[in-house]
């Protein structure tokens, strides 16, 4: 199978993720869309690794996973505390730097 198709898929996934980040209000969904974008990138990296025949892309994909795991921890913690203080998970409600 032509590896370029994987790149199309990665672009499609990234676009879906980006659109989700921009139009959804729910912080959890925004968060999941961010994850989708990260994984689209991972897919692209792995594809490039395959296309160029070296391991650079795979190494960076592992890095991305580690960063994504850390991000999930911090991000979920922020969302939980946001929900506790405002009783809402909407990102638009958190438009002020005060309560």
């Amino acid at each position: 199978m032509n590896p370029v198709n994987y790149l199309y898929l990665a672009a499609l996934l990234f676009t879906i993720g980006a659109t989700g980040v921009l139009i959804r209000r729910n912080a959890i969904v925004v968060f999941m869309c961010v994850e989708l974008m990260l994984n689209a990138c991972n897919l692209a990296f792995v594809t490039f690794s395959r296309m160029h025949g070296n391991l650079d892309g795979q190494v960076i994909a592992f890095f991305t996973m580690v960063v994504a795991a850390a991000e999930v921890v911090v991000g979920l913690a922020i969302i939980v505390s946001l929900f506790r203080s405002r009783h809402s998970a909407s990102v638009d409600d958190a438009s002020l730097m005060k309560l």
Partner: peptide, 13 residues
């Protein structure tokens, strides 16, 4: 600079 995270995201994109 309106405080809406999503509009910041738009400018970033």
């Amino acid at each position: 600079q309106n405080g809406y995270a999503r509009s910041y995201a738009v400018s970033m994109f």
